[in-house]
């Protein structure tokens, strides 16, 4: 009797771990294979291997020496950083007002912000193009910083509002009694309490800006002003058979590794930030 139960238990555990293994392998294999490919060069590239067989840095060398890729990388870092700083700056004060002060129309305003974050980017593309031409920032990083606000700002406002709502009221009242103005409350009482939330939202907004493609494709046209997603998307050879896969994979690994490292370091915070933005409301 006991033996049969044990067998059933062992089978169940085995099946469970098979499932777990399958999930892990499927999740990481494409990235693993991209890394594997990025270290191959010449004809090695077209030999299919499941394990590392050769090691060459030629692709990486080419990525960093030929073409505008280093410049693209700088553009991406600049655009994403400035976008995040701007969004956080605007969002911190706004979410204080939205979470802490009772005023008429607050519900509608929050609803509007949520709706904007659901906007299809294509719906504003034509109008944004006009504004960007009007401002004279077409084909500059500022065009992207400007347009990325459309998704980073609602997102940061939303997450920070849900977070600030949970800060105890009495701490704020103690600060009011101490003579703190709303600005002092935000900068000297709430901000220090919120920095984990700020880091999380900032990181998520950074990733979103780093990965953005449609605006970057539309509002920049020269190699010097493009960001990495566009650069990688447009890397190609003369024909289908000349696509420089090794270089593409090397560039992909370069832009992805920092993200993966950041995500793994902050994984707990990111998970809570994602769910705060998505489910909690």
């Amino acid at each position: 009797m006991d033996a049969t139960i044990d067998i059933w238990k062992v089978t169940k555990t085995t099946l469970f771990y098979l499932l777990v293994t399958a999930i892990v392998v499927i999740a990481i294999f494409p990235f693993y294979y991209a890394i594997l490919t990025s270290f191959k060069s010449g004809t090695d590239l077209f030999r299919i291997n499941y394990w590392p067989t050769s090691f060459s840095l030629a692709n990486y060398q080419q990525v960093f020496t030929q073409g505008a890729f280093p410049r693209n990388l700088l553009n991406s870092v600049f655009v994403a950083s400035v976008t995040v700083i701007l969004a956080l700056f605007l969002a911190v004060t706004a979410s204080f007002a939205l979470s802490r002060v009772r005023f008429r129309g607050r519900g509608i305003l929050l609803m509007t912000i949520l709706a904007v974050s659901m906007f299809p980017q294509i719906a504003v593309l034509a109008g944004l193009f006009e504004v960007i031409r009007f401002l004279g920032i077409y084909n500059t990083p500022w065009a992207l910083i400007f347009s990325y606000t459309i998704f980073t700002l609602p997102f940061t406002v939303w997450v920070l509002t849900t977070f600030m709502r949970d800060l105890p009221v009495e701490i704020e009242e103690a600060a009011i009694v101490d003579g703190a103005s709303p600005w002092v409350i935000i900068t000297r009482v709430f901000m220090p309490l919120m920095w984990p939330a700020l880091v999380t939202t900032g990181l998520l907004a950074f990733i979103a800006a780093w990965n953005e493609f449609l605006f970057a494709l539309t509002f920049t046209v020269s190699n010097q002003t493009r960001t990495v997603p566009v650069a990688i998307a447009l890397l190609s050879g003369g024909s289908q058979y000349e696509i420089p896969w090794g270089i593409i994979m090397a560039a992909s690994v370069v832009v992805t590794v920092p993200l993966v490292v950041l995500v793994l370091i902050f994984q707990r915070k990111i998970v809570s930030g994602l769910t705060a933005g998505g489910v909690k409301g």
């Binding site: 105890p168 009495e170 701490i171 009242e173 103690a174 600060a175 009482v189 220090p192 309490l193």
Partner: peptide, 9 residues
């Protein structure tokens, strides 16, 4: 205050 309301940081 009832909950002390000290600034935690």
């Amino acid at each position: 205050f009832q909950s002390y309301a000290l600034y935690p940081h």
